[in-house]
Amino acid sequence: MLELRLVQGSLLKKVLEAIKDLVNEANFDCSSTGFSLQAMDSSHVALVALMLRSEGFEHYRCDRTISIGMNLTNMAKMLKCAGNDDIITIKADDGSDTVTFMFESPSQDKISDFEMKLMEIDSEHLGIPDTEYQSSIKMPSQEFLRICKDLSSIGDTVMISVTKDGVKFTTSGDIGTANIVCRQNTSVDEPENATEIKMQEPVSLTFALRYLNSFTKATPLANIVTLSMSADLPIVVEYKIGDMGYVRYYLAPKIEE
């Protein structure tokens, strides 16, 4: 038996919007730790890892570790029917081939339930070690979205270079080239407007912009995004979900031939 009650239901709505374009169907793993997911896009170039810790739910009951396979497009369709202020409860009985989403309005005057068919999904989990990255950049998530969007109109790939002077985003295409440099700036009024660059080693990696653009669908979840990079490793793009968890995206780099 699984029963998860999330008072801030809008978080779940935003999470689905953040992952459904990258991954069409996925297994959600439920355990005493939390509600999580790891899934790759169909080309195995990008991966999304979601964690919603059990402490973040008002009520969290998960009798045994289970994996429930859901079509994310369909799940997003159902969650779109929840109001932004609604409380969302996810329920699944043992052995059932359906999951129920219950939406309660804050004043309890409207209660809806949507039952969705589960799917059998073959999925493989990748073992991603916890590593110290050579460089990490914290920046406003809106700024990162803007950069990815702007550069996409010029080229298909972006080279992200971190040096002690800042982080440079470079692209080129048929019409020309573009460079955007962001410098460390922590002397701002609001911490969410700060750009913070930690660098142990300079790093320069190239990535497909269409994936980074897809990751920015998570922007409504967090004011800050963290980019972590090491030479010859996938980049990690992390959006924290309050103190409840995170959505992390991993993207394999382009490699010179």
């Binding site: 195995h44 073992g127 790939t157 996938p234 382009k254 010179e256």
Partner: peptide, 14 residues
Amino acid sequence: YSNQSTLSSFYGTL
């Protein structure tokens, strides 16, 4: 010219 790598060349499956 640059080639797109895949995640399986960096991480093993569990």
